[in-house]
Nucleic acid binder design. Structure first.
Lengths: 154, 154
DNA sequence: CTCAGGTAGTTCGAATTCGAACCACTTGCG
DNA sequence: CGCAAGTGGTTCGAATTCGAACTACCTGAG
């Protein structure tokens, strides 16, 4: 193919900032969660999604979709959470293959304990650093990016 | 501690978009790089930094700073790159403990081959999806986020 | 009914990650 | 000089990741 359209200085600045912020923020939050409540970030995300779902349960596939992990990664993490008693597996009545991950009471409690610290960290390191206009730009722009990437994988 | 300042709907939108975009984009680029040129994203980043450095060489520590990886992770990746002949290790003359990672000719060639496809992917999935205003907002906002997070680790 | 093809989730092995412990060296201070 | 404290990198083991193969099941066309 023809000549490459390289990134302009401004585009480069955005790309580098995004890359670095993404890596550093992840590390920071991972650390904070682990220290503070013994959960990994993926685990926390799983609990959040479950707690937001009706009856605190979701099919494995629904959890995997829109989530960071591959299917096998999800299997692994749910197993970990199950060992910790924060989640339970329940076979789907209408489809024997299907599995629901169900949030236990202990899981809901654990999430409620972990949430304030986590939210505070997200605020401190990201949200409160941005102006309201930047927040909207990020929400709109990266929202569109996400939507398109999701569309690819389907 | 007092009451938690939860995220507003708009803040939530930004945070979720950021999280998802970061994960999906990483996966996408990882895939593209691996398929296209057999490099992992971390490896590509290392080559980029080396190629931008004077004489194509940097101290291990300088590479580790500002980079995604921990020190041990860097050791691992440089070893991989060395096996592939893309990078060489050179002991620092003035400090026997110090090690330079040096880009080889093969490494520079490999990077030149890989770059166009990578840049095209970054464009397609991120840059060209954003408006110029959003690019600036991301560069400014996340740049500040990055700067603060870097300051913490020092 | 029956079989082909798709779907749900798990298992497997290989690669990569991290932090903690470790070695070897350098530096600064007496 | 001589030793305590710090630095630069590597090594180690444990945890986590992924994709590919696999098992078991459902579904629809004929």
């Amino acid at each position: 193919m023809g000549d490459t359209r390289w990134l302009s200085a401004e585009e480069m600045r955005a790309w580098n900032a995004f890359l670095a912020a993404s890596a550093l923020l992840n590390r920071q939050l991972e650390q904070q969660l682990k220290d503070d409540s013994g959960l990994s970030h993926p685990q926390y995300e799983i609990l959040v999604r479950l707690s937001a779902a009706p009856d605190g349960e979701l099919r494995m596939t629904e959890l995997a979709n829109g989530l960071i992990n591959s299917k096998s990664g999800l299997t692994y993490q749910v197993t970990q959470l199950e060992k910790a008693g924060l989640v339970r597996r329940r076979t789907c009545p209408t489809d024997v293959r299907g599995v629901y991950a169900v949030l236990t009471d202990a899981g809901r409690r654990r999430l409620e304990e972990a949430a304030p610290g986590h939210v505070a960290a997200v605020r401190a390191h990201l949200i409160d650093v941005l102006t309201p206009e930047q927040i909207t730009a990020v929400a709109d722009g990266l929202g569109e990016v996400t939507a398109r990437l999701r569309a690819l994988g389907r």
